[in-house]
Every structure is written in C-alpha cells, then in structure tokens.
Write a protein that binds this DNA or RNA. Structure first.
Length: 374
RNA sequence: GGAGGAAUAGCGAAGUGGCCAAACGCGGCUGACUGUAAAUCAGUUCCUUCGGGUUCGGUAGUUCAAAUCUACCUUCCUCCA
C-alpha cells in the first residue's frame, strides 16, 4: 500500500527507540506519537480543531460503539467517518476486540466470532472477522484493527494458547475479508505474559504481511515488569520496518517503556477520562484539581505547560469549574492532559534524534514521578 | 387568646424503649481510572491519646436500658378567634 507506510528516519543508538514519519492517506504524522481516543466519533468534550491544535495527528474511534450507534451505514451515507466527524486527519478504528474484554459479561466467544448482547438495548449481534471488516470498511478509517480477543490478566496458559490460535485464525480471515483500498489493516499480537505465545503470534502475523502491527492485551492491571515483558516478547518478533502500535497505554512510564523498545504509536483514554474526573498530569506530578488546597491557588495548573488551559486559567478557577460540574472545566482539563502527553512525545522525538532517549526518559520519570500513576 | 403539629449530625430526612454514634440523600473531604457501558466509581464525614468520650431543642423524671415514654420550659409551623 503505497499511501501508507512508515518512514524510519532515525533509531536511537542506545535503545530501540525510533523516530519516523507515518504516511497516511490523510496526512503524515511523526512517530512516536500519542493518539487521543474518540470512541464515539468524538474526543469527549473537544472539537476536532481543538484536538488538532493540541498537536494530535491520529484520532481513534471504535467499531463496536459506532456499529451500535449511529450504525456504520449512516456513517457511510454521511461520506465516511472523516466527513461525519469533520476531521481531515488520519483516523484509526479499533475493532471491538477490546470490548471482548471490557464487556466480557455481555458476550460469548466461538470460533465464528463473538456474540455481543448490546449494552444499550440487549440486541444480540455477531462480531466476526468478516462483519468487523465490513463495518470498518464502511466507517472508512485510514488504519483499522483486525478483530482479536483482548484476554484478561492473569489467565492460565492453556486459555492464552487457545485464544492466540483463534486470534491468528481471525487475523487471517480479516486479511482475506478486507477489500477496501486506502485502509491499513493492522494485525494484533496477543499471548498474555508468555514469550512463547507472543513470539508465535507475532511471527505468524508477520507472515501474513500486515502494513502494521499492534500489541494488545497490555495495561489491563498487570504489574509493570509483566507489562514490560509483554511488550518485549512482542516487539522482538515483529518486522522492524513496519509501524508498531501499543494499544491502550497512556501512563507516561508505560509509554516511555514502549518507546524505548521501539513502539511508534500509543493511544489511551486515560488523559481524557481522568481529566473529566479532575485528575491532571503535570510537571509537578499528578494533581487532583478538586482538592481543597487549590481553592485559592491562582497559579496555572502547570507553569511549564504551553496549553491553552495553562496559559489562560488558574487552578482556583479550574477547581471551581470542576466542583460546580461545569462542562467547560472538563474541556479545559481534557485539553491539558492531551497536550501534556503530546508534548512529551514531541520531546521524546527530539531526544531520539539526538540519541539521548534513555537519559530523557530517566529525567522525565524522576521529574514527573512515575509512581504517581501516569 | 384557643386548637393542633414539629424540633435528629453542616443541610434535608428516616428512626418512636435495647441490634443507635443514629438509615438514606445532599453538601464537605480524599482516592482511583490505561485499544471508553466511565461528566464514572470507591472511601470518608460528632470528638478521641483508639481505651474510650459526648450526642438526637432544654431541664427534670420513669426504666436494668431513652433520640424513642412522662412533666414542664423554649422556639417554629398550621388552623380558629
């Protein structure tokens, strides 16, 4: 696919971190990058222009949720997701594989696919590699995910083995079913914490020759050392020239861990979700803006931050908006958290180009306090 | 002037003899959130040196035991003159 490829421009001499440009039908974006999540065709509370102004390239959306509401046919009629949501940058749709995990009580897995009971009205519907490809083609994102099973952690090895084999068969079916031009279909590496299964999964996917590969099944409650292994065991066996996407990772220390190992793309609901709940990522560590100590704090949320929120508003005001449950507060806080992560990515890219990513990582984690949870 | 009714933790409001330091809601305080069923969820909210102490308008009683029963007082509400 000539309009989608990763151009690797530099690999850090001291680790696996790499800098490059991902070419997509809706524009070029630099990697490593963080992609804000807009599950329902909107990054909650923000306009596409705002998301773009924060430095975001790719926006994520979700097959399961858009299938339920408004339905892929309506999106297609609207002219596709880009037009529908008025975003002309690259869009990535997740396949619903994560919902196999997050909505586990409402679904049943079989070889054919997954029957979900809609969380909205109880409708039963089959998500199979074929139906998911059909939906994702109609949505029309630039990057689409194969339908996989995101398995929980911890889970016994036998389950992992069976699930990986099935995810691989599904990946093959996705590849065969996917026909639309101008869409990059990514295969997803699963395998839990087991090197044997991650390796097998990555190698088999590589044989199928996807334009990019995702690493799934992480950041679901496993300890950091386990997370690290999961990423290692996956990246190691993936073709270096293809983009690597570590799914659902949004805390700074986990992202840096991924970059160091050679991951290019990250997405996470974390910055936007915790922002709506009053938690902020700042250069002083984590801030809960609701806390009483900010009642009369007329300084910016983060004096090192260049975002609209930090340039124009005080903690006392942001706290007031939060406490008063004003929507504007959630918007300002969401902007800040997204900008914080994207700014970190910009700095990380600079560091990689200068072969000092490892120092940069240590410096940032010491400063931002990786123990504080982001 | 007369007749009823009501007073419970910051607020609202249950409780009408022991299982009551007192349900629940709000407000306050705090924490969590990782391919979004999340503008959500959880904890905490009389004092304490964690042994205990002091509470349910006030005072005095009844009782082994009172927020709960009795008497009086105070305040408030409604109705009648």
């Amino acid at each position: 696919m000539k309009d989608f490829y990763l151009e690797i421009l530099h690999v850090d001499k001291n680790c696996g971190a790499r800098y490059g440009i991902l070419h997509t039908p809706h524009g070029d974006v630099e990697v490593p990058m963080f992609m804000p999540v807009g599950t329902l065709a909107t990054v909650k509370t923000l306009s596409p222009e705002e998301v773009k102004s924060l430095g975001a390239g790719v926006i994520l959306s979700n097959t399961y949720h858009l299938h339920l509401r408004p339905g892929e046919d309506i999106v297609a009629k609207a002219g596709g997701l880009h037009k529908f949501m008025n975003y002309d940058g690259p869009i990535l749709t997740d396949s619903g594989g994560f919902q196999v995990f997050s909505l586990a009580e409402n679904r049943k897995i079989s070889e054919e696919g997954v029957v979900f009971k809609s969380h909205l009205n109880g409708d039963r519907m089959l998500f199979s590699p074929e139906t998911v490809m059909d939906i994702e083609e109609k949505l029309g994102a630039d990057i689409i995910m194969a339908f996989d099973e995101c398995i929980p952690y911890p889970v016994d090895e036998k389950y992992v083995k069976n699930s990986v084999e099935r995810t691989l068969r599904w990946a093959k079916r996705c590849k065969e079913a996917h026909k639309r031009e101008g869409q990059a279909l990514f295969g997803i590496v699963q395998g839990g914490e087991y090197e044997e299964h991650r390796k097998h999964c990555a190698e088999e996917l590589a044989k199928m020759d996807f334009p990019g590969y995702s690493i799934g099944g992480t950041s679901i409650g496993e300890p950091k050392d386990v997370f690290s292994k999961m990423v290692d065991y996956s990246v190691k066996y993936l073709p270096p020239e293809k983009p690597r996407y570590l799914m659902g990772v949004g805390s700074l220390d986990f992202i840096f861990e991924g970059i160091e190992k050679g991951v290019d793309m990250f997405d996470c609901v974390l910055p936007t979700r915790i922002a709506r709940h009053g938690a902020l990522m700042t250069s002083k560590g984590r801030v809960n803006i609701r806390d009483a100590k900010y009642k009369e704090d007329f300084t910016p949320l983060d004096d090192e931050c260049d975002c609209y929120t930090c340039k124009n508003y005080t903690k006392a005001y942001l706290r007031h908006l939060y406490v008063a449950d004003e929507t504007f507060g959630k918007r300002l806080l969401s902007m800040h958290n997204i900008r914080f992560l994207i700014h970190m990515m910009e700095e990380a890219r600079k560091a990689i180009k200068e072969d000092r990513f490892l120092e940069f990582k240590e410096e940032m984690l010491a400063k931002y306090g990786s123990k504080k949870g982001f």
